[in-house]
């Protein structure tokens, strides 16, 4: 199974995007994370790392070898850098998708329900959202 993390400067935006993606996600773990930890706009590496670990199944016991890989969706600027730091800190195999956060999260959720899904296939599908036309 591949886990998904949604990172936004706004905690509520991360939660809302995760809510939309979860409709398509079956049993996939989707962890929203955002905000500066003091009720404001921003992101914190430690919180993103915790979300990655949770999406990897780290909260369900077992050692590092049992962790699922994780695809991380991010919004803008410093959120990308903080997610990058969190990916380095985490014991789980995590990778950032270069994709729009909402569309990418929905695509990733659908891709993750495929029984043969891998971290690469989920990231690729998330990144395919860059080419989605709306009109």
């Amino acid at each position: 199974m591949v886990g998904i993390v949604v990172v936004s400067h706004s905690e509520r935006a991360a939660e809302g995007i995760s809510e939309i993606a979860a409709e398509m996600a079956g049993d996939t773990r989707i962890e929203p994370v955002g905000g500066d930890g003091q009720g404001g706009i921003g992101t914190v590496p430690d919180a993103i790392e915790a979300a990655i670990d949770a999406a990897a199944g780290g909260d369900e016991g077992g050692d590092a070898g049992d962790l699922d890989p994780v695809v991380v969706l991010v919004d803008l600027g410093s959120a990308v850098m903080n997610a990058d730091v969190a990916v380095e800190l985490s014991d789980a195999e995590a990778t950032i998708a270069d994709a729009p956060v909402l569309e990418g999260a929905v695509n990733a959720a659908v891709a993750a329900t495929d029984p043969s899904a891998t971290v690469e296939s989920v990231r690729e599908q998330a990144e395919a959202a860059r080419d989605v036309d709306k009109l």
């Binding site: 921003g42 590496p45 430690d46 380095e88």
Partner: peptide, 19 residues
């Protein structure tokens, strides 16, 4: 610094220093 500075300066000044 990484957890307290915020913005891009947190990961840039703090993350780089940790590394």
């Amino acid at each position: 610094l990484m957890s307290e500075v915020g913005g891009a300066s947190g990961p840039l000044f703090g993350g780089s220093l940790v590394f």
